[in-house]
Design a protein around this nucleic acid. Structure first.
Lengths: 128, 128
DNA sequence: TATATATTTAAGAATTTGCTTAAATACTTA
DNA sequence: TAAGTATTTAAGCAAATTCTTAAATATATA
């Protein structure tokens, strides 16, 4: 029966708040997982990396550093985060390492690429 | 004709890299916008807030702070970020401020909620 | 074996984030 | 008008992020 940091407003609907808490509790793990994926995708650099990998299939660190205009260590470190987050995978060919999206987590971020494509198309229409 | 930080590998396909650069350039603004939205959604606290608002329609700061078990300033500051990012909107009723998702940016994040719902349902199935 | 290439790892600095606590604001009601 | 409630603002701090540069690793080639 603690009030904790609750407000004291008359219209506070305890039952409704409980309903919300339960809903949140049920979705807790999913929200944790998803927020992890989203925070990875939610950086300009990493979203560019993901976009390029989605469009091109696979690219090496060198290519990516070239296209993004960033140093290889910088790119490598971001790729590592994406790999740790299970969003991308790597394949070694000689001394070159090719990165590609991992099909597994794609369900969550695929719609984002669709969004990028659609928006980009719209922007280009405007220009024409 | 600068090599910048490009690798010197024989198989570097200049034409392909150019193609990638152009593609990235075309999507640049969209990627900037989207990464902004994703980084906002990519925090456990804020994703919870968005999820609750999506499920419940609208909630006041007090309710949200109650359900999340966080102080009101903490919640308020996160809501502010979401509002600055144009993801949510507020409506004042007396001294209470109700927050709700903004239809505008919903296109980008709607699929995420679907993902949460689906995943949560699956997890609950497992338990049963 | 020596040298070069592609990549990673490590250490460190500048910036950003996400909270905390205290105080300010705005509205309501006695 | 005074007191109370819902919320925001502000200042500050600990932790996380993202780059930089330098060095290490692994593979290829002369």
């Amino acid at each position: 029966m603690e009030e904790e940091n609750a407000c004291l407003r008359v219209f506070a609907d305890k039952e409704h708040l409980n309903h919300c808490s339960n809903k949140l509790e049920a979705a807790k793990e999913t929200i944790q997982d998803l927020s992890e994926v989203l925070s990875l995708a939610g950086s300009e650099t990493r979203l560019k990396l993901l976009y390029l990998l989605e469009q091109e299939g696979e690219l090496c660190v060198c290519d990516l550093s070239d296209v993004l205009g960033m140093t290889m260590p910088a790119v490598s470190q971001q790729l590592r985060k994406l790999k740790d987050g299970n969003i991308i995978q790597s394949k070694k060919v000689g001394q070159t390492i090719f990165y590609a999206l991992k099909p597994e987590h794609l369900a969550a971020i695929r719609p984002l690429f669709q969004y990028i494509s659609d928006k980009t198309a719209k922007r280009l229409e405007k220009v024409i």
